[in-house]
Lab assay of single mutants.
Amino acid sequence: RFRLSPAARNILEKHSLDASQGTATGPRGIFTKEDALKLVQLKQTGK
């Protein structure tokens, strides 16, 4: 289970993504908004 920032949680839910597909870069291993946006971008480019 990942620790998600509220913004990251919202983005992941909106795009039906799972945090385990990305890398948490925030302090103390928190999955940040920026991490979520990177994951969305990867999904949109098909990689």
Rank of each mutant, 00 (worst) to 15 (best):
R1C: 04
R1L: 00
F2C: 02
F2R: 02
R3Q: 06
R3G: 07
L4A: 06
L4S: 11
L4E: 12
L4F: 09
L4D: 14
L4G: 09
L4V: 12
S5T: 13
P6S: 14
P6D: 12
P6I: 12
A7P: 01
A7Y: 00
A7H: 02
A7G: 14
A7D: 10
A8K: 06
R9A: 12
R9V: 10
R9P: 04
R9C: 00
N10I: 12
N10H: 12
I11D: 11
I11V: 08
I11H: 07
I11K: 06
L12A: 08
E13Y: 02
E13W: 01
E13P: 03
E13I: 10
E13Q: 10
E13H: 08
K14T: 14
K14A: 14
H15Y: 11
H15I: 00
H15D: 09
H15E: 11
S16E: 14
S16R: 12
S16Y: 06
S16A: 11
S16C: 10
S16D: 14
L17Q: 04
L17I: 10
L17A: 04
L17S: 04
L17F: 02
D18Y: 02
D18N: 14
D18P: 01
A19R: 07
A19T: 06
A19L: 06
A19K: 03
A19M: 13
A19W: 07
S20G: 10
G22F: 02
G22Q: 04
G22Y: 02
G22E: 05
T23Y: 08
A24Y: 00
A24K: 02
A24G: 07
T25I: 02
T25W: 00
G26R: 03
P27Y: 01
P27T: 11
P27H: 08
P27E: 12
P27D: 13
R28T: 09
R28N: 15
G29N: 06
G29P: 03
G29H: 01
G29T: 01
I30P: 07
I30S: 11
I30Q: 11
I30G: 09
I30H: 07
F31K: 06
F31I: 10
F31L: 06
F31M: 06
T32G: 04
T32P: 04
E34F: 06
E34M: 03
E34S: 11
E34G: 08
D35Q: 01
D35V: 00
D35A: 02
D35L: 01
A36N: 05
A36L: 01
A36Q: 06
L37G: 10
L37Y: 06
L37W: 08
K38W: 00
K38Q: 11
L39M: 12
V40E: 04
V40A: 07
Q41Y: 02
Q41K: 15
Q41R: 15
Q41P: 10
Q41M: 11
L42T: 10
L42P: 07
L42E: 15
L42K: 15
L42D: 15
K43D: 10
K43A: 13
K43Y: 10
Q44S: 13
Q44R: 11
Q44Y: 13
Q44D: 09
Q44M: 06
Q44H: 11
Q44F: 08
T45E: 14
T45C: 10
T45D: 14
T45N: 15
G46E: 15
G46F: 05
G46Q: 15
K47E: 15
K47D: 04
